[in-house]
Amino acid sequence: MVKSTRLSEGSVMELLELIPDPDIPVVSIVELGIVRGVAVDENNKVTVTITPTYSGCPAMTVFKEDIRELLLKNGAEDVEIKIAHSPTWSTDWLSESTREKLRAYGIAPPESNSSDSVPLFSSSKQKIKCPHCGNTNSRLTSQFGSTPCKSLWYCDSCLQPFEYFKCY
């Protein structure tokens, strides 16, 4: 019987980079900063520590299933998924290249630092750069959009609606 070789932490990370966000398939769960740690023991049991994005984000359930399925298929004997609540996930963790992928996909990436810095009652005077035409002649249509992480905007230059990945 062929005994499967031990997975390395690095190869597990490479596998995890293949798992896309179900709602934004151009970015992976690693790029989003959801994967916080990987450990492999001598029996090829893999422990993946992830951190939730929005408290109620339905994608989290999909992430967990995808991680388990992919790792079991690629040699892991067992998969344990741990949830880390601290430090709190933030859009500040998105790298410049991840932001560029979002823009190319048609979603305006978060423009300022996490929401902590936004004053409570400023009706948004913020101008977000339209991902389609690049102009900032835009306005907020709704603070809440198709997923918990996005708000709805309208560009008055190219007359197209677009989604904005909210600061979190």
């Binding site: 939730p52 109620g56 709704s142 959009g145 198709s146 918990p148």
Partner: peptide, 20 residues
């Protein structure tokens, strides 16, 4: 429509917080 989405989004956040 936007408010329908807003209220259910807020609801979803609260469900998630409750679950934790």
């Amino acid at each position: 429509l936007e408010e329908d989405l807003a209220m259910t989004n807020i609801s979803l956040d609260l469900f998630g917080q409750a679950e934790t």
